[in-house]
Design a protein around this nucleic acid. Structure first.
Lengths: 205, 205
DNA sequence: AAATATATTGACCAGTTGGTCAAGTTTTAA
DNA sequence: TTAAAACTTGACCAACTGGTCAATATATTT
């Protein structure tokens, strides 16, 4: 393994283990030693690549925020709301299924006051949010969907989809086993239908 | 202040401060000293009433779980689903508004694997859940509402209402200020309308 | 009033934790 | 080949934390 490859590979391993740990017990509950154990490196080596636990945490958050990108980013006034919203909800559910730890780290950070992603919330996300509100409002103005407050619709989508990642421990117990395969798809399609119905729409496809 | 009153009053103060702290930084992140500071008692006094931090945490969880009781508990086959579900969603939203810390402590506990409320989830809640599924299914069988999977409906309600407590830091920033008063009521009525529409129902009142 | 139970509190301690460091090894560049 | 840069790692430490305890004070009961 070449030099720069070593760095890349080790950083990746560390980030992966760190994400797992932070998602399970939060920042304060995570031990640098347990991250090291999890990825099979000595603790001092972990702190060689990320100079402090806080640094590592920020790196994990950065990596997670790039996952939030979506088809909805490029939605325009002329697009079909049913199509765009359906796909956005499905994407979000897929993310909850494939990267639940990412969703949980994000949730923990927000619950704890979001101090470490303040800049992200106030800049990138706020901008994204405002532009999406405008698109939804234009769909309403064109009579393509019922008049609802677009803000509440976005919160609604985030809440109901992220729940499947963040609360999977509860869901798994009430369901007597993790939701998976077809049943998870059913949950997805239920959400698509329900949320779209709230906008006076029917799912695409 | 009489003897037993001292105990009651101090326990209450401690529980209140503890809830606040656990909600903000989780179990691992909370310092017994900071709970003591918050309620103006010496640390040794806090540990006199609750013999360990874990004990105190369990007391906080116990207190929170009693809040989960609701009108929906007594819903029957003969009731009107629109009425019952509307009121349940409104209750849940009210709780998110009035006791956000309770919701956050619960969320943190679930995200961390729910090991401390395992018994509650598997007994009380599982029983409640099963009986509510039956009631909803009976409404469907009677043609009172559209055929949806009752499980997903309950998850949907929990997710979308608790979100306003758990993610209020994010909401406040995107909204440029906390949702409150009329705007919070608007959010509530949006959710009622939207979720009911997903069941082919219209809000009561 | 005396005896007993309950409550208060500063001082203390053992275990843990994030982070440092210096000595060594491996990889890269000249 | 050799010098420099990058990487590895055990040993170490200062700061912090949950929890104990003994001494004292206050309230309750007899």
């Amino acid at each position: 393994m070449s030099g720069s490859e070593i760095r890349t590979a080790n950083c990746e391993k560390i980030l992966q283990s760190a994400t797992k740990m932070f998602a399970k017990v939060g920042f304060a509950g995570t031990r640098v030693q347990s991250i090291a154990d999890d990825c099979g490196l000595p603790k001092a080596n972990v702190l060689y690549y990320f100079k402090s636990k806080k640094d590592l945490y920020h790196a994990v958050l950065d990596q997670i925020l790039t996952l939030w990108n979506s088809v909805f980013d490029k939605a325009e006034i002329d697009d079909d709301p049913a199509e765009v919203l359906s796909e956005y909800i499905r994407e979000k559910m897929q993310l909850s299924l494939e990267r639940p730890e990412a969703s949980r780290v994000f949730a923990l950070e927000i619950i704890s006051g979001a101090q470490n992603i303040d800049a992200y919330l106030e800049n990138e996300l706020a901008e994204w949010f405002a532009s999406r509100l405008a698109v939804i409002q234009s769909w309403i103005d064109q009579g393509k969907m019922q008049p609802i407050n677009p803000k509440f619709l976005l919160f609604h989508i985030w809440a109901s989809t992220q729940h499947y990642a963040d609360f999977s421990a509860q869901i798994a117990r009430l369901n007597r086993g993790e939701l998976k395969g077809e049943e998870y798809e059913d949950a997805t399609e239920y959400l698509v239908r329900s949320i779209l119905a709230g906008c006076g729409l029917k799912p695409s496809e």
